[in-house]
Design a protein around this nucleic acid. Structure first.
Length: 421
RNA sequence: GGAAAGAUGCCAGAGUGGUUGAAUGGAACAGUCUCGAAAACUGUCUUAGUCGCAAGGCUAACGAGGGUUCGAAUCCCUCUCUUUCCGCCA
C-alpha cells in the first residue's frame, strides 16, 4: 500500500512510474486524493466539535462541584446539537477512510527507476549469466523420468493420497529434500540470518499485511472452520513477526524453511510436468527489514547470497531484472533467478528477490526510530534461498551421468552420499 | 468439549463516573558525579490523525466493536484472545 502522504506530495511522478508497470487505472490516484481531501476536512470539523463538547463537559463538572446544579443542567442542553453533528461527521469520516483504503489497496507499488519497460516475461532484462550448460550424454532424461529410474519421487501416488501436484518423495529423493533444506538454512545462518520455524497457517490479518489478500485470495488454500490460510510462502508468517512493531534495531534478518501451498489454478502442459509446478513444495526464505537508505544495497547483498548457493550447487544460472509488466503488485524491484534445466532445455525460475520499500511496512506498520527519534516506516525485502522442486529438477538433469546422478561436493555432507544410484 | 478468572503504557502494576494520557516501580535514553565504570542524583520517555513555516494547538486510543451519560480506563451488551482447572490427545 502506497503512503497517502507520498501520493499527496508526488502525484504526478507516481503516475508516471506506475505507467512502467502498465497500471491501467491511473485515475485511482486522483480518486484517492479527492477522498483524502474529503476525509481531512471532515476530520477537522469533527475534531473541532469534539473539542467544544469536551470544554462543556468540563464546565459542567466544575459547576457540579460548586453545587450549581441548575446551571449545570442548563448547560447540558448545549451539547445536544453538537453531539448529533459529531455523529454525522463520524459516519462520514469512517466512510471516507474506508473508501480511501479500498482505493489504496488497488494501487500497486511504484517500480524503482532501474526497472525496464515491458509487458511480458520476454522483456525482462538478463543482467547476468553464469556457468556452462552441460553437454549431456545421448540418452539423458528429463527429471520426471529420472525420478522413475531411481525411485526418487512419485506424483501418481500423490494423486491417490491428495491430488495432482502433491509429490511423494522417496529414498534418496526424500533424503535430497532434507539435505537441501539444511544446506540452504546453514548458508543463510552463515550469512547472519536468524532461523525461524513459523506457523504454516496464518490468519486473515497476516495474509492481508503481506499483500496476499485481498487480490490473491484464490491462490491460497483456506481451512473451513477457522478461515486460516495455508501459507504460500514463509514470507507471510515471517514478515508478520514485525507487524505493528517499532523496531529498536535494524536490520532484522530472518530465514525460515517451510512447506509452501499454492493452488495456482489454470496451468497445463509441459510447464507443469514433473516438479516444474506443484501445489506443495519446500522452500527456504530470507527476509530482511532495513533502514530505507540501505534497502538497495541490501537487495544486492541478497542477490549475492542466492548466487553463492547456486554456484555451490554447480548449476548454470541467470539473473533477470523483471520488467514493469512482469513484476509483482507489491514489489519495487525484483530479480528473478533461473537455472538451466539441461534435459528440458529451458530456464526454470528458482528464486525471486524483491525490495518492497515501504509497500508492505505501510500496511503492516513496521517502523523504526530514525536519527531524530521520529518513527518511520522501514523497508522490507525478501527472497527465496531457495525453492526446492526446480532446483531438484535441474540438479537431477544437469548432473546425470550414464551410471548415476552426481551430488555437488558442497551438498555431499548433507546427503551423506555422492551419487544417486 | 466443560468450568472459572482475566485483558491498562517497553515490562510489572495502581486506578471503578469529572485536570487519568493515565499513579508507583523497573527498563531504556540523556546529563551530573567519576580517570573510567558501578551506585546515587536530575531529567526525558506512548502512538496515530489533523491544523501550523515553526513553536505548538486540537482530536483519538486503557483487547475489539457497540451502548448509557453533559462527561467512561471506570457502568451495560456483544465478540476476540489469554491464563488456570477438568476431559481428550501428540
Amino acid at each position: 500500500m502506497l503512503e497517502i502522504i507520498a501520493i499527496r506530495n508526488n502525484a504526478e511522478e507516481i503516475k508516471q512510474r506506475l505507467a512502467v508497470k502498465n497500471f491501467k487505472e491511473i485515475n485511482l490516484i486522483d480518486d484517492v486524493l479527492a477522498v483524502d481531501e474529503t476525509r481531512r476536512s471532515i476530520q477537522t470539523k469533527l475534531d473541532e466539535n469534539l473539542s467544544k463538547q469536551n470544554v462543556i463537559a468540563k464546565e459542567i463538572g466544575d459547576l457540579f462541584k460548586q453545587g450549581k446544579k441548575e446551571e449545570a443542567d442548563k448547560k447540558k442542553s448545549e451539547t445536544v446539537s453538537l453531539k448529533e453533528e459529531s455523529k454525522q461527521f463520524e459516519t462520514g469520516l469512517a466512510k471516507a477512510e474506508e473508501e480511501m483504503k479500498d482505493i489504496l489497496v488497488r494501487i500497486p507499488n511504484t517500480p524503482h527507476k532501474s526497472v525496464p519497460d515491458g509487458k511480458t516475461p520476454e522483456e525482462n532484462e538478463v543482467v547476468k549469466l553464469v556457468g556452462e550448460i552441460p553437454a549431456l550424454y545421448e540418452d539423458a532424461l528429463p527429471h520426471w523420468d529420472l525420478a522413475k529410474k531411481y525411485d526418487l519421487f512419485d506424483l501418481e501416488l500423490g494423486v491417490k493420497i491428495t491430488g495432482a501436484g502433491f509429490p511423494v518423495y522417496r529414498k534418496q529423493g526424500a533424503k535430497l529434500q532434507r539435505a537441501l533444506i539444511s544446506f540452504f538454512l546453514d548458508n543463510a545462518i552463515e550469512a547472519g540470518y536468524t532461523e525461524i520455524i513459523p506457523p504454516h497457517m496464518v490468519n486473515e490479518a497476516s495474509a492481508f499485511a503481506t499483500g496476499q489478500l485481498p487480490d490473491k485470495e484464490g491462490q491460497m488454500y483456506v481451512t473451513k472452520e477457522e478461515g486460516f490460510y495455508l501459507i504460500p510462502t514463509a514470507e507471510v508468517p515471517v514478515t508478520n513477526i514485525v507487524r505493528d512493531e517499532i523496531l529498536e534495531t535494524l536490520p532484522v534478518k530472518f530465514t525460515a524453511y517451510s512447506p509452501c501451498f499454492r493452488r495456482e489454478a489454470g496451468s497445463y502442459g509441459k510447464d507443469v510436468r514433473g516438479l516444474n509446478r506443484v501445489h506443495q513444495f519446500d522452500k527456504v526464505e530470507i527476509v530482511q527489514v532495513v533502514h530505507p537508505d540501505k534497502s538497495y544495497a541490501v537487495l544486492e547483498e541478497m542477490v549475492k547470497h542466492v548466487e553463492s548457493i547456486l554456484q555451490k550447487l554447480e548449476l548454470p544460472y541467470r539473473i533477470l531484472r523483471l520488467c514493469g509488466g512482469d513484476m509483482s503488485f507489491a514489489s519495487a524491484l525484483t530479480y528473478d533467478f533461473e537455472v538451466f534445466s539441461a534435459a528440458q532445455k529451458r530456464w526454470l525460475e528458482v528464486s525471486s528477490v524483491s525490495n518492497f520499500e515501504t509497500f508492505q511496512s505501510n500496511r503492516m506498520k513496521v517502523r523504526f526510530r530514525d536519527e531524530n527519534k521520529k518513527t518511520r516506516l522501514a523497508h522490507t525485502l525478501n527472497g527465496s534461498a531457495l525453492a526446492l522442486p526446480r532446483i531438484v529438477a535441474s540438479l537431477l538433469e544437469n548432473h546425470q551421468t550414464a551410471d548415476g546422478i552426481k551430488i555437488p561436493a558442497a551438498l555431499q555432507r548433507y546427503t551423506g552420499f555422492e551419487k544417486i544410484v
